[in-house]
Design a protein around this nucleic acid. Structure first.
Length: 369
DNA sequence: ATCTGGAAGGGCCTCTACGC
DNA sequence: GCGTAGAGGCCCTTCCAGAT
């Protein structure tokens, strides 16, 4: 638990956990003995106190470089191969959790049944009805998804959302969008099909079926799932790496296709799976309101007991001490149930920013000549 | 339709206790 | 002695969101 010495610590506040982490150790605090051992970075040739290793793909050797060169090199040679890293999963999970935490309960009245219901989030799936489209993933995102998002923002106030791109079994890209607004399923389908139609992506469908209204969209108004943010974020971050290639259970037929290449995988039961293709470009994105730069960080005084008591004396929080840093995990409900004081204020202020779309607010401070 | 600001992408770093 | 767990920070290039 917290000690009593008065030092500032960083608090990173998320809807389902709070991390307490100290400031990073400055090199200036190192001992004089340590400072004597100056070495040279093999990339920038600058003198350094510490060197780290990288694998140079061009020279096929390991090199000792400074921290800055190391991180630069990693990013310059970065490839996601269609799978989400652990870090990306964490980022997306937090974005969805912020979305769910900020979403207010909304009421929808259905004329035909004369009944109303409440909901908080919508889970939308957008697909391409044609299988043999020439559209690349980037073109799909810039020419179909982007105009659709602009239309949705203007028509339905779609400002808070998280999208994730996935490959379908037929190789097409499809998009899941989680958002806090209600969209009628017919309006959604009409708007999405209009974008597809503009690019001629319904022509082949029309030739086959005689109309231009394919079931290319799906929408679920999520009403009363327990821990719904957890459910949605877990669904989205789950790696859907493989597709089944045979409808027969436990298909072990290896003669149907050549499975000697690395695109095939056989599980312990002997079932063959075909690797899904990788999505090119970004796998997911969140609206700027929910992005990582809007994360909630607070510098707290470790000696302020009134501040810490809401964390340390709270049985509803699952405390994990990693020595270097501490994490308090909890259910999102604890924000209204047992987390009080300064922390609650910080959290509520952050939610208000997401709800009222702080990106669009006029600036409160101007500088003129 | 075009432009620009900013987000995604991932490996290694920080720390220490613990298990092998 | 080594590997592991967990969080965010660091870094630059590519590509997307949002404004115009």
């Amino acid at each position: 638990m917290r000690d009593n010495c008065s030092t500032p610590v960083n608090l990173y506040i998320q809807p389902t956990y709070i991390t307490v982490i100290p400031d990073r150790i400055e090199h200036s605090n190192r001992s004089s003995e340590y400072l004597k051992s100056i070495v040279t970075c093999q990339h920038c040739s600058e003198p350094q106190f510490d060197l780290f290793s990288i694998y140079d793909y061009e020279k096929e050797t390991y090199q000792s470089v400074c921290k800055e060169c190391q991180t630069k090199y990693h990013l310059a040679h970065n490839l996601h191969v269609g799978l989400m890293s652990q870090k990306a999963k964490t980022r997306m999970r937090n974005a969805v959790n912020w979305l769910a935490a900020a979403a207010t309960r909304k009421r929808v009245w259905q004329k035909s049944t004369n009944k109303s219901f409440y909901f908080k989030l919508s889970f939308i799936t957008l697909t391409l009805p044609q299988h043999d489209t020439e559209l690349s993933d980037q073109e799909f995102k810039s020419r179909v998804l982007h105009p659709f998002l602009i239309y949705a923002a203007k028509s339905w106030s779609l400002y808070n959302y998280v999208w994730k791109a996935e490959p379908q079994d037929n190789g097409n890209i499809h998009i899941h969008i989680t958002t806090d607004i209600f969209i009628h399923h017919q309006k959604l389908r009409k708007a999405w099909n209009r974008q597809l139609s503009n690019l001629g992506l319904l022509d082949k469908f029309e030739l086959k079926h005689g109309h231009r209204s394919p079931p290319s969209t799906e929408i679920k108004a999520v009403r009363s799932v327990k821990n719904l943010a957890g459910y949605i974020s877990e669904y989205l971050v789950k790696d859907k790496k493989f597709k089944s290639t045979c409808s027969i259970y436990n298909c072990t037929d290896s003669t149907a296709q050549d499975k000697s290449n690395s695109d095939w995988y056989q599980d312990k039961k002997g079932t063959w799976w075909e690797l899904k293709r990788a999505i090119t470009g970004n796998i997911w994105y969140s609206s700027s309101n929910l992005s990582a730069t809007n994360k909630l960080m607070y510098v707290a005084d470790s000696a302020d007991s009134s501040f810490w008591s809401t964390l340390t004396d709270n049985d509803a929080l699952n405390y994990i001490d990693q020595k270097y840093y501490q994490v308090y995990y909890f259910s999102p409900k604890e924000w209204s149930r047992s987390i009080t004081g300064k922390l609650r204020h910080l959290f509520n202020d952050h939610l208000a920013g997401i709800r009222h779309n702080w990106q669009k607010s006029p600036p409160l401070f101007h500088i003129i000549d």
